[in-house]
Lab assay of single mutants.
Amino acid sequence: KTYTFRVRIVDEETGEEKEIEVTAKSEEEAKKAAEELKKKYPNLKVELE
């Protein structure tokens, strides 16, 4: 079973919002993916929905 999570990304500089879908095998995995995004884009606000 896989879970699909919507991750909302807000670029703090431009105020631009993007939504991406993360497919993960567990909620834990999705959280890790969101953390990776935060590391990659430090000025983005990442929200897991």
Rank of each mutant, 00 (worst) to 15 (best):
K1W: 09
K1R: 11
K1P: 10
K1N: 09
K1F: 09
K1G: 08
T2G: 07
T2V: 12
T2N: 11
T2W: 15
Y3W: 09
Y3L: 07
Y3E: 02
Y3M: 06
Y3R: 05
T4V: 12
T4H: 07
T4E: 03
T4N: 06
T4W: 12
T4Y: 12
F5P: 00
F5M: 04
F5T: 00
F5Q: 00
F5H: 01
R6V: 14
R6W: 14
R6C: 11
R6G: 01
R6K: 13
V7T: 01
V7N: 00
V7D: 00
V7R: 00
R8D: 00
R8Y: 12
R8V: 10
R8H: 06
R8Q: 04
I9S: 01
I9N: 00
V10H: 06
V10C: 09
V10T: 13
V10F: 13
D11R: 01
D11I: 05
D11F: 03
D11N: 13
E12K: 08
E12V: 11
E12C: 14
E13M: 11
E13K: 12
E13R: 12
E13T: 12
E13P: 01
E13I: 13
T14H: 02
T14F: 01
T14G: 02
G15H: 03
G15Y: 02
G15K: 03
G15F: 02
G15A: 02
E16F: 10
E16M: 09
E16W: 14
E17Y: 14
E17Q: 09
K18N: 08
K18E: 08
K18W: 15
K18A: 08
K18F: 15
K18P: 00
E19F: 15
E19G: 03
E19Q: 10
I20S: 01
I20Q: 02
I20F: 12
E21C: 14
E21W: 15
E21D: 05
E21Y: 15
V22W: 07
V22L: 13
V22N: 00
V22K: 00
T23Y: 15
T23C: 13
T23D: 05
T23I: 13
T23G: 03
T23A: 06
A24Y: 12
A24F: 14
A24K: 02
A24M: 05
A24E: 03
K25Q: 12
K25F: 14
K25N: 14
S26P: 00
S26M: 01
S26K: 01
S26F: 02
S26L: 01
E27Q: 10
E27K: 09
E27N: 06
E27L: 15
E27R: 13
E27V: 13
E27G: 04
E27P: 11
E28G: 08
E28Y: 10
E28D: 08
E28K: 08
E28H: 09
E29T: 03
E29V: 03
E29L: 06
E29S: 04
E29P: 00
E29N: 03
E29H: 04
E29Y: 04
A30I: 07
K31G: 05
K31F: 12
K31W: 14
K31A: 09
K32W: 12
K32D: 06
K32C: 10
K32L: 13
K32H: 11
K32Q: 11
A33I: 15
A33Q: 10
A33N: 04
A33K: 14
A33G: 04
A33L: 14
A33H: 10
A33E: 05
A33P: 00
A34C: 14
A34D: 00
A34T: 11
A34S: 05
A34Q: 07
E35V: 08
E35R: 08
E35P: 00
E36M: 13
E36W: 13
E36Y: 12
E36A: 11
E36G: 06
E36R: 09
E36T: 08
E36N: 08
L37I: 12
L37K: 01
L37H: 02
L37V: 04
L37C: 06
K38C: 10
K38H: 05
K38I: 12
K38Q: 13
K38N: 05
K38G: 07
K39M: 09
K39N: 07
K39L: 11
K39A: 09
K39G: 06
K40Y: 07
K40D: 04
K40H: 07
K40C: 10
Y41S: 03
Y41G: 02
Y41A: 03
P42C: 06
P42F: 06
P42W: 04
P42K: 06
P42T: 06
P42Y: 04
P42D: 04
P42E: 04
P42V: 05
P42R: 04
N43M: 07
N43Y: 11
N43C: 07
N43V: 04
L44M: 13
L44Y: 11
L44W: 13
K45M: 08
K45F: 09
K45N: 07
K45V: 10
K45R: 13
V46A: 04
V46L: 09
V46N: 03
V46S: 04
V46P: 03
V46E: 03
V46H: 04
V46Y: 08
V46T: 03
E47C: 10
E47Q: 11
E47T: 14
L48K: 05
L48E: 05
L48Q: 05
L48I: 12
L48H: 06
L48D: 04
E49M: 14
E49A: 13
